[in-house]
Amino acid sequence: MSKTAFVQLLDLAAGLVLVISFAALWLRRLATVARMIAVQGLALAAVAAVIGIYEHESELVGVAVLVGILRAGVLPGLIRRAVRAGDELREVESIINVPASLLAASALTLVSYATTRDVVALSPAPQVRAIPLGIAVVLIGMLMIVTRRKAVLQMMAVLMIDNGIALVMFLGTSGVPLAIELGIASDVLLAVFILQVLTNRIRTKFGGTDLDQLRALRD
């Protein structure tokens, strides 16, 4: 793979991860957002694969396959089950409306670019240049947690944050040992399992997963 092709492919994949975050904020149907998270996982796997192929690291390619299976297959599958289990199809009213959240997301992207300038300046490598994208995905994931009411959406937001962290990891370290990625993967899997169980419990207890109604549980 030539250097130009590598840079183009890497930027495409990493940019896709960020664009999908915006899409997830923009879309309302829960099932569609879940599909977006799956695509994001796929893009993330592509980032790992591109780096692995360019640097001839077979282990990183293996990691990419693992990431693809987990983040584009298993985890979104679990989420889809959670969506199907409830009768909620869309986020009815978020805390702030869609245009406002898109604006906020743009601002967060700016923040991430502004704050990582020193990191980017460390190395001219194209991977390092893309690190702000990962930070922006993390921040947008948090924004999604804060502004959405449905617990299922928040599960997806947690996955998005994790995707962002993984993106920074691939870009910043150029090659993660398989063991570490396995550990992280099992952590995320466990977290999603727990979240799914909790969401089900909330639903059976309160008839919905609107977290704002939990406020009455205080004190």
Partner: peptide, 12 residues
């Protein structure tokens, strides 16, 4: 005030 969203906003 007990709102999870507010607590999460704090951390963001």
């Amino acid at each position: 005030n007990g709102s999870i969203h507010r607590y999460l906003t704090f951390s963001l």
